[in-house]
Amino acid sequence: MIRRLAIKEEMKKAADAAEDASNSRPFEIAARSGFAVSGILHVLIGVIAAQLAFGSGGEADVSGAVAQLASQPFGPLLLWVCFAACAALALWQLTNAIFGHRRQKHPKVSKRLSEAGQAVVFAGLALTIASFAVGKAKNSRESTSDGTATLMQAPFGVALLIAVGAAIMITGIVFAVRGFTRSFKKDLVLSPSEPARKFQVGVGTVGYVAKGIALLLVGLLVVIATVTARPEQSTGLDGSLKALKEQPYGPYLLAAVAIGLIAYGLFLMVKAKTMRT
């Protein structure tokens, strides 16, 4: 009994230490910079998508955006800085999901799940950036198709892929709803200046809706590729945007989504500075 209490006390001390570390100002600044990095990447994706809409080539996804960063002066150094920022944000979100609500009587499970999900997303982003930094980057479109093909051959793989595609589509709908309802405002410290406040809300509204549409398209392609047993059609964000261009009025629709992705990138940069903690 005494040993059990001692172990419990040690675990509590470890949890307190982890929570204190996550609340430290230097770590918070490093983590917030991860939102800024994600914002820059979304702006680059939007720019590439706009170029696609008007006839240029490019890869309109995270890999294409990171490749753009890598091509800049001091590219490798820039990539490692971006990697550190995204890794810090992933760790910050994970720490908040595990320890951040211990003092609340009835912490929301949805909040914890959201933070855990964001931790996974930013950890994946950090790994993508690191793969470019060490020169082992892969074409994300081909990787997505290959991963889909592999899962199709696995037991329950088809059901899993359909579930994943549906989950991505639902996430896209949630993003769009957040944009239309402007519920994201509760996550920000809104500026007392009316022009700045309008900018915060404006880029958030447009950005969330566009991000939602993009995710909806990605999930839809996953489901279609799985149901039709054509994994080559599961091509991630780049393939989804290029498929959008092939639709009636496609270039105009793609240009609109591109503008929205740029807006979402600007919103993330704003969030890095004004997010509530």
Rank of each mutant, 00 (worst) to 15 (best):
residue 207 G to C: 10
residue 207 G to H: 14
residue 208 Y to Q: 08
residue 209 V to N: 12
residue 209 V to H: 14
residue 210 A to G: 14
residue 210 A to S: 14
residue 211 K to M: 13
residue 211 K to L: 12
residue 212 G to V: 06
residue 212 G to M: 08
residue 212 G to D: 13
residue 213 I to H: 10
residue 213 I to L: 12
residue 214 A to Q: 08
residue 214 A to N: 07
residue 214 A to H: 03
residue 214 A to K: 06
residue 215 L to N: 13
residue 215 L to R: 06
residue 216 L to G: 05
residue 217 L to V: 05
residue 217 L to D: 01
residue 218 V to N: 01
residue 218 V to M: 11
residue 219 G to K: 00
residue 220 L to Q: 10
residue 220 L to P: 02
residue 221 L to S: 10
residue 221 L to M: 13
residue 223 V to L: 05
residue 224 I to W: 10
residue 224 I to K: 12
residue 224 I to C: 02
residue 224 I to R: 14
residue 225 A to M: 08
residue 225 A to P: 07
residue 226 T to A: 02
residue 226 T to P: 06
residue 226 T to S: 13
residue 227 V to H: 10
residue 227 V to E: 09
residue 227 V to D: 08
residue 228 T to D: 10
residue 229 A to P: 00
residue 229 A to D: 13
residue 229 A to W: 07
residue 230 R to M: 04
residue 230 R to A: 04
residue 230 R to C: 02
residue 231 P to V: 00
residue 232 E to W: 01
residue 233 Q to V: 01
residue 235 T to A: 10
residue 236 G to V: 05
residue 236 G to D: 11
residue 236 G to E: 13
residue 236 G to R: 11
residue 236 G to N: 08
residue 236 G to M: 08
residue 236 G to A: 13
residue 237 L to V: 05
residue 237 L to W: 02
residue 237 L to I: 04
residue 237 L to G: 05
residue 237 L to S: 03
residue 238 D to T: 03
residue 238 D to G: 05
residue 238 D to V: 00
residue 238 D to Y: 07
residue 239 G to F: 00
residue 239 G to M: 03
residue 239 G to C: 02
residue 240 S to K: 05
residue 240 S to F: 03
residue 241 L to C: 05
residue 241 L to F: 04
residue 242 K to V: 02
residue 242 K to E: 02
residue 243 A to Q: 13
residue 243 A to P: 00
residue 243 A to L: 08
residue 244 L to H: 11
residue 244 L to Y: 11
residue 244 L to R: 07
residue 244 L to D: 06
residue 245 K to H: 11
residue 245 K to W: 02
residue 245 K to M: 06
residue 246 E to V: 00
residue 246 E to S: 14
residue 247 Q to N: 11
residue 247 Q to L: 15
residue 247 Q to M: 13
residue 248 P to L: 09
residue 249 Y to R: 05
residue 249 Y to C: 03
residue 250 G to Q: 10
residue 250 G to F: 05
residue 250 G to T: 09
residue 251 P to E: 14
residue 252 Y to L: 12
residue 252 Y to Q: 08
residue 252 Y to V: 00
residue 253 L to M: 13
residue 253 L to F: 15
residue 254 L to R: 09
residue 254 L to G: 03
residue 254 L to N: 07
residue 254 L to H: 08
residue 255 A to F: 15
residue 255 A to Q: 08
residue 255 A to P: 01
residue 255 A to Y: 09
residue 255 A to K: 04
residue 256 A to P: 04
residue 256 A to H: 02
residue 256 A to S: 12
residue 257 V to L: 15
residue 257 V to A: 09
residue 258 A to E: 08
residue 258 A to P: 04
residue 258 A to D: 04
residue 259 I to M: 15
residue 259 I to R: 14
residue 259 I to Y: 15
residue 260 G to Y: 14
residue 260 G to K: 12
residue 260 G to S: 09
residue 261 L to V: 00
residue 261 L to G: 02
residue 261 L to K: 09
residue 261 L to H: 11
residue 261 L to N: 09
residue 261 L to I: 00
residue 262 I to P: 11
residue 262 I to L: 14
residue 262 I to D: 12
residue 262 I to F: 15
residue 262 I to R: 06
residue 262 I to M: 15
residue 262 I to V: 13
residue 263 A to G: 06
residue 263 A to M: 07
residue 263 A to E: 06
residue 263 A to N: 09
residue 263 A to L: 05
residue 263 A to F: 13
residue 264 Y to D: 06
residue 265 G to I: 05
residue 265 G to M: 12
residue 265 G to A: 12
residue 266 L to M: 15
residue 266 L to E: 14
residue 267 F to H: 15
residue 267 F to V: 00
